[in-house]
Design a protein around this nucleic acid. Structure first.
Length: 590
RNA sequence: GCGUCUGUAGCUCAGUGGAUAGAGCGUCGGCCUCCGGAGCCGAGUGCGGAGGUUCAAUUCCUCUCAGACGCGCCA
């Protein structure tokens, strides 16, 4: 169905046309001056030039057409105001009519895409053998939300974790493991039997081994060389190394799934860098055959510089001078793989914005070498860093990288403390604190524009007041409690009908509600979950205002009561739906 | 050096080619004490700076200042 604003716009555009002006000038938007009107049209101002007329005269003409036309009853007030604004207040009945149709619509007024795209979203950014840290948080949170938003729009979305499992990191672990346990069967090259099913290490072993080996290799050249050799041997298929590698993946994936589940983040696909390896030989062959790739300083590269560039864009490197593959190679091969498996119309990368130049190179290279056609959108959704209160990248007190689990735990504990005096049993508080804590983290992140850096402020994010996750949850919980009360009193209305009672706060809520379509479409088009947050906050505020000013369940006027219960229900539906798009859930009480 | 991004209230963040640029937190003053007070009203300060385009610029363009980030064998 059309959005509410589109409906008004239709009327205004028609009026421009009837009055003899181009209908394109009839654009309607939410008012900048809520004290004067609810919606406004500024088209007369820009039309003035074309028609050599004073703007207010044009506005007068248009308003006249509307007030004398068949749609006049849609407006409570529409007037032309100098220098040429058209100020609009809609009639409560017209508004309520839309509310009801929205309420009846299973998608709450959102139209599914008529031409659904197949979209692969690459987010998460996890590596095997390394714990998730706060740097992975944004990719997971934003990617998850975008996945949900695009699915809701009706697209066919595939979320891919795209695990990093193929680099030097594995070689380092193998080398260190060899040093510590040289007798392991994996290192015996003459061994031909089956390898054990059980890994010779746990996740916490890996978490200790990797950083150690990494640091050690930076100090010791020979050690580093061993690791590089091990990496190469792994990649060329040495059996024992492959077995270790498989253990590393199994142990890591099991661990990652636990924490991603905690975050309410899921992936349709657990693809790994290594899965793309099989596409590399043909890809490189084609690049050479096509004359795209050439040797430069010993390395195989594809030039991606374009004439319009204002800076030097380095060539995209496909093979290092020692013949080894690198990040670029895998990413390009992954595009080949994705095209083969899903034939997507869009591939969306939710990645740290510092990688913007790198992805520009990869995208250009992919297009130039015809790995992907011009009809496929490659979208880089770069996000900023999460900073501490000092404005610098988030660190632990001793300057280390903060593990994601630790962060989640700290937030949960902080929420628990706040809830300590609740009349709830301890287990329930713990459970609820998890939900609220997650809302605090995610909403705190998503309510900012993704591309900007933001400050992680525990006290602010977990506050139950202001533009926070907990505040939105509270509003939803409050409505739930209201509905429970109504049920107890056996006064739940028989139907879902909402009527207009002429109440001012009621109209306010209604106006907030009908803005949903615009907010959602804006979020979907611009990959901008923060638009959803903004909407939810505004809706929550106007609902709370309404709630404060009026008696809903205890109202003695039965018609008002029924309508307002239904209105509250609609608000709850919208909040639940919106929070779900952000990847959040609502507790029963808090 | 070249390039990208950012700069909006004391702090954290929204927003816009148009009429008086918004919210939260914090501060100060007040109201309401009713279905969950997590509510409401008021006070106060701001578009980094300078030009330009436009009837109209915080928004678009140029320059400038400040900060963050990036610039072939890491990912």
């Amino acid at each position: 169905m059309n959005s509410f604003i589109n409906n008004i716009e239709g009327i205004i555009k028609k009026a421009f046309e009837t009055a003899g002006y181009n209908s394109e000038y009839g654009k309607v938007k939410i008012s900048d001056r809520p004290d004067l009107c609810e919606f406004q049209c500024n088209g007369a101002l820009s039309a003035a030039k074309e028609y050599h007329k004073a703007p207010f005269m044009i506005a007068d003409d248009v308003v006249k057409v509307v007030t004398e036309g068949v749609n006049a009853e849609c407006f409570e007030d529409i007037q032309s105001v100098k220098p040429g604004f058209i100020n609009i207040k809609v009639s409560p009945s017209y508004l309520v009519e839309y509310l009801n149709s929205m309420n009846e619509d299973e998608n709450l007024g959102i139209e599914k895409s008529a031409t659904p795209d197949t979209i692969v979203i690459d987010y998460g950014g996890a590596n095997v053998a390394k714990p998730l840290h706060v740097g992975h948080l944004r990719s997971a949170i934003i990617g998850e939300s975008l996945k949900r938003i695009l699915k809701y729009k009706g697209h066919n979305v595939v979320g891919d974790v795209h695990l990093g499992d193929w680099g030097l990191q594995i070689g380092l672990i193998i080398t260190e493991l060899h040093k510590r346990q040289p007798d392991l069967v994996y290192f015996d090259e003459s061994y031909e039997g089956e390898y054990p099913e059980e890994a010779p290490f746990t996740m916490s072993d890996l978490e200790e081994i990797y950083p150690y080996a990494n640091a050690y290799s930076k100090e010791h050249e020979d050690y580093k060389a061993l690791a590089q050799t091990a990496t190469q041997e792994l990649q060329s298929g040495r059996r024992g190394y492959r077995a270790i590698w498989q253990h590393i993946i199994d142990v890591s994936v099991a661990d990652l799934k636990v924490i991603y589940t905690k975050l309410n983040v899921s992936f349709d696909l657990w693809k790994k860098e290594s899965d793309a390896q099989e596409y590399i030989p043909d890809m490189i062959h084609d690049m050479k055959e096509g004359g795209y790739a050439h040797i430069d300083q010993g390395a195989l590269v594809v030039d991606v510089q374009e004439e319009t560039d204002t800076q030097t864009i380095p060539p995209c490197m496909i093979l290092k001078s020692n013949g080894a593959t690198l990040y670029n190679t895998t990413d390009l091969a992954t595009i080949v793989e994705r095209r083969k498996l899903f034939n997507p119309n869009r591939i969306v990368y939710v990645v740290d914005k510092r990688q913007s130049l790198y992805f520009e190179q990869v995208f250009r290279c992919a297009r130039k070498t015809k790995i992907i056609g011009d009809d496929v959108t490659l979208k880089f959704v770069g996000f900023g860093t999460m900073n501490g209160k000092d404005g610098k990248p988030f660190k632990t007190r001793d300057g280390g990288v903060l593990r994601l689990e630790k962060l989640i735990q700290e937030v949960e504990e902080s929420v628990e403390e706040k809830m300590a005096d609740r009349d709830m049993d301890e287990a329930l508080i713990k459970e609820t604190a998890k939900i609220i804590g997650l809302a605090a983290i995610k909403y705190g992140d998503l309510s900012n524009q993704a591309s900007k850096d933001y400050v992680f402020d525990l006290d602010r994010f977990t506050s139950f007041e202001g533009n926070t996750g907990p505040y939105i949850l509270y509003t939803a919980v409050r409505i739930k409690s209201l509905l429970r009360k109504a049920e107890e009193l056996n006064i739940l209305p028989a139907d879902e009908k909402i009527v207009s009672t002429g109440n001012e706060a009621e109209k306010n809520v209604s106006l907030s509600i009908v803005k949903w379509t615009e907010a959602f479409e804006d979020a979907a088009e611009n990959y901008a979950p923060h638009k959803i947050c903004q909407y939810l906050y505004e809706l929550s505020e106007s609902f709370n205002g309404f709630y404060h000013d009026n008696k809903i369940v205890t109202n003695e006027n039965e018609d008002e009561r029924a309508s307002w219960i239904n209105l509250s229900k609609l608000c709850l539906k919208l909040i639940e739906n919106g929070l779900d798009l952000l990847g959040l859930t609502i507790p029963e009480q808090m």
